[in-house]
Design a protein around this nucleic acid. Structure first.
Lengths: 261, 261
DNA sequence: GCTCACCTTATTGTATCCAATCATGCTATC
DNA sequence: GATAGCATGATTGGATACAATAAGGTGAGC
């Protein structure tokens, strides 16, 4: 079994990264218990750093904790997702506004333009594969990160980066089609433009709307699935079902940890 | 030395509460190191639950963590405070909007009205003492909590309740004067009214503005102090200085823990 | 045959021990 | 006299042993 990467500061930190990837990967069904002993054995460490990582993940609401019972993968209902995205939309709106207030630094502006060029090229290519999708997802994260950083609000940045949107990574091959990504590209171009022109009010509105636009169909899909089944949480488990068995070799970091299917 | 309250589920949870109160209490100067051994001895437990609590607090950004060095009380610059309150204002705006969208339940409405009656009575009394201030602070928290709950967004509620505004508790005697509280009362009345009338847009704007209004003077004060001294962080330490020696018998829970001056 | 109680076992919670790391202060050398 | 290197102490990081709790199964009694 592969050991963890020990170039990181402490084992606890490394385990935290590993378990975060595991949880966000979406391979584990809601309710799955995270056994401390099993995890520590898989990662080649003792229970101590595993417990530290689990504590941190539970504090971030990425997993559930029940005293004397342990940690488990939490279920997301369509309502939960809606709430998560509503908060995120609001916070990204704030980030865009503050970025517009502050204006881009020359470096930020260059970076944003670079990213937009890259994503434009991907979209214009007309091809769409798992590999290209992964490239686009990385660029998409980089784009939002660049804007969120430009806002110059450390508190906001921390909240946005520490609350990754669950399932987005997991469902990306199903979700980010060329059509969706093309619309996102238009949004991104407008976001950058509005910030450059320091249009504060529009920046907030567009930043917020961009999140609503891109996530609403996902929520609708979950809601539909929930209607078909009565049980809460199961809806999303099903949405992810195809992924739990799919090939995932592209994700090097998680694969490195021995968490393959 | 007083032991921790063991009616709570696990020692780890109890220690977390205790340390959270300690940190939010504002008695410890920025940079103060949180020695695991010392804390465990004070609380009458081993280092293990202390470490769990410290991990959680660091994850919530209430304390700072440096690998192989430990945990310490973080400093807040005026800029930090501004960022924290900007995020909070935005989130409370969202809460008010969602509350207006959903409307009050009969119970929520009754509770909000009760609280408004109580705070109105305090303000109308014309007297202002530490004791009355404490009563008002508790009611103020209850008011915002009631509205935030009425929004029906669990995610949002968690973020708001897990990110208590630092220093508010610490500086409350200096800060919440009869004048300030009286203005807050007007805001609260309007917030409740607008939600009752389901005026969604105004609810968001007023909720947001209420936070800006009540916190901006605090930020200005910090900024002024920072101008006087060059060092960052020290400003707020000074703002709190009088409190570090002040009598604090009103805070039963923290006093219970043996963290007196 | 069903239910309740007890016991067993698996897993978490806590304490303690050892290792690793960092900071401090001293000494020696330039 | 100043600086670099080393040694020593204090503190954190990690592992392990032990205690407590919860869940599940088995047995006996009704």
């Amino acid at each position: 079994m592969t050991k963890i990467n020990d170039t990181v500061t402490t084992r606890g930190q490394a385990v935290l990264e590993a378990l975060r990837d595991l949880v966000l990967g979406g391979r584990l069904a809601p309710g799955t218990r995270l056994n401390e002993i099993e995890l520590s054995q898989r990662l080649g460490v003792s229970r101590t750093p595993v417990r530290a990582a689990l504590t941190a993940l539970a504090t971030q609401d990425l997993i559930e904790y029940t005293p004397n019972s342990g940690y488990s993968i939490r279920a997301y209902s369509a309502r939960d997702l809606e709430n998560v995205f509503e908060v995120r939309a609001t916070l990204e709106g704030l980030a865009n506004r503050q970025a517009a207030e502050a204006g881009f630094s020359p470096e930020s502006e260059a970076r944003v333009d670079d990213i937009l060029d890259s994503t434009a090229a991907l979209v214009a290519g007309g091809e769409w594969s798992a590999e290209i999708c992964d490239r686009w997802v990385a660029l998409n994260i980089a784009f939002h990160q660049a804007i969120n950083r430009a806002a110059g609000n450390q508190r906001l940045l921390t909240l946005l980066e520490r609350s990754p949107v669950p399932f987005i990574y997991a469902v990306r091959y199903q979700w980010f089609t060329l059509d969706i990504v093309s619309k996102a590209q238009d949004d991104h171009v407008e976001m950058a433009s509005v910030i450059k022109n320091r249009q504060v009010g529009r920046a907030e509105a567009i930043g917020r709307e961009h999140i609503y636009r891109t996530t609403r169909p996902l929520i609708e899909k979950c809601r539909e699935l929930e209607r078909l089944q009565q049980q809460e949480g199961c809806a999303i488990a099903d949405l992810l079902q195809p992924l739990r068995t799919a090939d995932d070799s592209g994700e090097s970091r998680r694969a490195l940890l021995g968490f393959g299917a």
